[in-house]
């Protein structure tokens, strides 16, 4: 029993770390989907660009992790705002699938460019000195940096949730989701709200990228697989529910690493198998209401 516990515990915490990255990505994806009704396929590439920017800032300018954590999301957010303004905003009045298709094209461009510039090989990002070493949790040792990632993700996710559910800006967001026309008549600039939301979601992806840089390898395709996993998580979380998405992210992150103990080969499949099983057994989603997406 004790052995099992000792084997499970590290995997459980590793799962929390992966879940933290998933949560940051899926929350951004959900917020964008909730308001813009667009599945932001380029989210994984925005994650990758965030990680790459941090890497480049460190290697070429000597700018460290903490500044990168501010600069990378800012750059990605602003660039994404420009893209939303000039291109994505033209797609709101037509079938939502075109938003998915457009962002797919953008993904190919970004990943292709980064491969062209930097090659496909992964690059290592050194853990910042202030966060290196391990922490004694009382029952086990855990790398300090990974603990920081979990805490940062939980804080950001809860912050996003509170922002949407408890603040005035959030009430505008929810109103824009329900009835954008009516909100416009109240004098709210809805298109600015949409741009800001898109930039915010993209910036969250870049934060996730910066946080992930020291854990995963920085490479042009680091976002592709994680993107598909996050898609599955968003489906499991019930599309559009921030709370459900956060819960699903951490649960599936843990499920993935715990699977590794029993079936090492199946770990990367776990999320998809769970998604498929859930769709067959509980078609309304894990956390209740199923939203029509069309």
């Amino acid at each position: 029993m004790n052995d099992l516990f000792n084997a499970l515990l590290p995997q459980f915490f590793l799962g929390l770390v992966n879940g933290s990255i998933y949560a940051l990505l899926s929350v951004g994806l959900t917020v964008i989907f909730g308001l813009l009704r667009i599945v932001n396929f380029v989210h994984g590439a925005q994650f990758m660009v965030g990680a790459f920017l941090s890497y480049l800032l460190l290697v070429y300018f000597g700018i460290g992790f903490w500044w990168s954590l501010v600069i990378a999301p800012l750059v990605v957010g602003l660039a994404s705002a420009a893209i939303e303004r000039t291109m994505i905003s033209r797609l709101y009045n037509i079938d939502h699938m075109y938003g998915l298709l457009f962002t797919l094209g953008l993904t190919l461009v970004l990943e292709g460019l980064f491969r062209y510039w930097f090659g496909s090989a992964g690059r290592a990002y050194v853990v910042p000195e202030s966060l290196s070493g391990v922490v004694n949790l009382g029952f086990m040792y855990f790398p300090r940096y990974r603990l920081f990632v979990v805490v940062a993700s939980v804080v950001l996710c809860l912050g996003t949730w509170l922002l949407i559910e408890r603040t005035r800006a959030g009430s505008y967001l929810r109103a824009a989701h329900e009835n954008p026309q009516l909100l416009r008549t109240f004098g709210i600039n809805v298109s600015l709200l949409l741009t800001a939301t898109y930039a915010f979601g993209a910036a969250l992806a870049a934060v996730a990228g910066t946080l992930a840089a020291p854990i995963y390898q920085v490479g042009p395709f680091m976002g592709t697989h994680i993107m598909v996993v996050v898609f599955a998580i968003v489906v499991i979380g019930g599309m559009g529910s921030v709370k459900g998405t956060i819960a699903a992210s951490f649960l599936l992150g843990i499920a993935e690493t715990v699977t590794k103990i029993a079936f090492p080969q199946a770990a990367s499949m776990a999320v998809f198998v769970i998604m498929a099983a859930l769709l067959v057994l509980r078609p309304e989603g894990l956390f209740g209401r199923q939203e029509s997406t069309r």
């Binding site: 599945v39 998915l100 489906v235 997406t293």
Partner: peptide, 8 residues
């Protein structure tokens, strides 16, 4: 349907 079908 729609987008969910694509994601799944």
């Amino acid at each position: 349907r729609g987008i969910q079908f694509a994601m799944i």
